[in-house]
Amino acid sequence: MSTDLAPGANLAALRKQRGWSQELLARKAKVSVSQLSKVEIGDRTLTPAVAAAAGKAMGMTAAEVMGKTDVERGGKQPLNELRSAMRDYDLPGRQEVVEEELHAALSAAGQYRDDVEVKSLLAMLPKLLRDATAHAHRANTVASWTALSDVYSSVYWLAARHRWMDMAELAVTRQRWAVEQKRNPLGAALAARDRAGTYLNGGDYENGLVIVDRAIASAQRKLSGQERAFAVGVLNLRGMTLAGRLEDKKEGKREAERHIASARRAAEEFGEDWNRHHMIFGPQNTATHVLATRLDLGKPREALTVVEDIDAILAGLPPTRIAPTRINMARAQLDVGDRDGALENLSRAWDVAPQMARIHPMGREVFRVVTSLHRRSNPELLRLSKVSGIPL
């Protein structure tokens, strides 16, 4: 079910729908009643780990607790067309596909993804997927199947941002199928990274780590040079995020530090971050992921220390990385009592990626808590309320 509620408010609504008391949910989810109460009234953010625990207690995924986001007006038809194109994965059309035009469309889709232009990306994906499918079946080359895999990766990205987990899981299945048509170790590693993302959004962090570790071992055997470093690095970024959200924080810290160390070693191969297949790896993106991981481990001050030179870290990265990093900084600042800093970073996140305001669950949650803590509206809160559609 889609919702316009921020995650903490959505959790409260889900609990009440079941007729559960806060005490009952807290006991089943193994969190304190005080923490749950603060989350529900908006004095504390709902963390991914608590969302996963509450979801497990209620028989739901973490993504469902965070709340699905519906498409904007005019988006239902292209969404239905996209689902239809995904069903026809082995039924290539007879349309003529000009390879140069296909590559141009792939580049445009990647740019929309990097810039978080959600509406534009959804509008073009159905035709792009059908064209890439037809081209892959006809050409039957590594490059053509890689191109199709890249389209499915963008479908996964779009679905995961909205918490449409049925579509996300189908997309990664199709993505893996595409890269398996011709030997493609790098494509397989990137597909595994996206597959692990479905475990991340579902709250199954342990099995997500299994996927990551297995893919890292394969990439280390089958790739070499910077391609190996890129694949291993991207997978380690996913691994540290999964580890940071483990229920057992001692185990989470151990696993996170292992992936952080491995990612930093791989990043030494790059002077600046690479953007390949619209996945980014290098020293800068590693730092943004360490911030998020330290925060998920309950170490907000350590998290903020990682990004003390935040402008240099974010320089050159696309909005799809800048905005979530600013949101994570805002979340960390809330945890250390800096509500003004949190408001500033949330504002900067939504200014660089306005369409993320509506679909990013933690951004919406941070705004809800910032609003609650400020107790009264101010011009910036009013502006962000209009941008996000969240009433004060």
Rank of each mutant, 00 (worst) to 15 (best):
S2N: 05
D4H: 05
L5P: 03
P7I: 04
N10Y: 08
E23A: 11
K28P: 01
A29E: 03
G42Y: 01
A62G: 05
E64C: 02
M66N: 03
G67M: 02
T69Q: 13
V71E: 12
R83I: 10
D88P: 02
V98I: 15
L102Q: 04
V116R: 03
L121M: 13
M124K: 10
A134G: 08
L158S: 00
A159V: 02
A159E: 02
Q175E: 13
N184A: 14
G187W: 09
D194Q: 14
T198L: 07
Y199M: 11
G202H: 03
D204K: 14
I211G: 08
R214Y: 06
I216R: 10
F230E: 01
E251D: 10
E255A: 14
R265P: 01
E269G: 00
E272Y: 01
D273C: 02
D273Y: 05
F281K: 06
G282F: 08
Q284G: 09
V290D: 00
E302P: 13
E308M: 03
T320M: 13
R321M: 05
M329E: 12
A332W: 04
A332E: 06
N345F: 01
L346I: 04
S347R: 15
W350T: 04
V352R: 14
A357M: 00
P361M: 10
M362E: 13
E365T: 00
E380M: 12
E380S: 12
